[in-house]
Design a protein around this nucleic acid. Sequence first.
DNA 1: TTGGCGCATTTTGCATTCAGATTTTTCTGA
DNA 2: TCAGAAAAATCTGAATGCAAAATGCGCCAA
Lengths: 228, 228
Amino acid sequence: MLHEEVVSRVRHMLMEGEIPPGARVPERELCLALGISRTPLREALKVLAAEGYVVLLPNRGARAAKLTQKDIQDLFEVCESLEAAAGELACQRITNEKVEQISVLHSEMVKHYRSKDLPQYYRCNRLIHQAIVDAADNAILSSLYESVTTRIRRARFVAPMHPSHWELAIHEHEAILNALQRRDGAGLSHILRRHLRHKREAVERAGFAESAQSEEKEVKPARRAAAG
Amino acid sequence: MLHEEVVSRVRHMLMEGEIPPGARVPERELCLALGISRTPLREALKVLAAEGYVVLLPNRGARAAKLTQKDIQDLFEVCESLEAAAGELACQRITNEKVEQISVLHSEMVKHYRSKDLPQYYRCNRLIHQAIVDAADNAILSSLYESVTTRIRRARFVAPMHPSHWELAIHEHEAILNALQRRDGAGLSHILRRHLRHKREAVERAGFAESAQSEEKEVKPARRAAAG
DNA sequence: TTGGCGCATTTTGCATTCAGATTTTTCTGA
DNA sequence: TCAGAAAAATCTGAATGCAAAATGCGCCAA
């Protein structure tokens, strides 16, 4: 099994909350579950620590990193800057074909919006933002964006999404596509920022209750009830 | 020896060019040199790969990552956005004491400029930029900035710095301090961007000759002329 | 002389093992 | 019954060992 395979699988577990934030990462169990020995798992944990998914306590193993409200705020702020930068650069560098591809994705997304298919809508949404970032043709930017959005997604705000916010998001996406077609870097940058701020506001409204409680429990069941 | 210790030491080696870009990372030798076994070294290499300092080739070990002109361009672009974001946020959040500290650093830097003490000048310069980023009070931003600037510094453009550019940099720093004191986020953001662009231009002018040659050697003596 | 093939050596990736630290359990005494 | 201490069990961090892959070389044929 490749190291990267182990890293993704464990990262996925952390993302999905199979290992809840603050909980110890059970080395032994994971080795059993993945069918590997401790060596590659520990290597993966080091990488995940560098990525910010776990924290390593000397002689006390690894714990799944907590995502505080502040962490999420920080991630959103950085994400906003990265997207804004991507918008500026994308307008300078994007090809007509790429714009066309994004346009197609956009139509598809609107279609899913009309049929209120949230998962598919999210999928298209992600692909569009990803495509814009990739169009900036900056590998560093892409990798940081990937890292930041993944960590944001870890917070799992699958709130049902208020209809008014959803509609607003669609309108913003129209503006995004429009700015991209006009190669209006400043405009795209601006609208991307606003778009993400709105998302963040929606997320904060929806997420507060949920994350407040998970903040409380000091997650340390130790004996019994390792993961339900 | 702590894992982090190993990571820093090897990263330092990569930064200093003791392991030149593109060269294989000799596991065995490094173990000897650091007095450790392969296990912690390999863990460190995984982390450094995640950080982008080395690339891991399956069953072929690790190689020091190359820094192409494109990589440097990408890093500068991202760095610019991060600093701009930091400037905006810092103006909203910075305390008077922090501004005062930066002001002191600034004076010190000007002093070193007057006496043409480049290393000390660079030191103050770094501390000022770092302080502004830290004043943004965003842990994610700080860590990404740290990572990006470190990687830029790896390129080692210790060009003697043109007097005209140096003077310009000082003027820009005056403006930076001024914007910070006025809490002019937009202004600070703008001047930080311009400042970094100028640095990048200077670096590109100075660095081209140097990096062009190191670009050539395919650092892979092995079979001779693998990609001549 | 040169190009291709096969074998020995080296290197990589992972499992296993070992020493040290930590946590849990048990025992003792009040 | 309970607090504190000692001992056992567990867990972490690192070294070593082993199988598989890759590299280096030597040989053979054209």
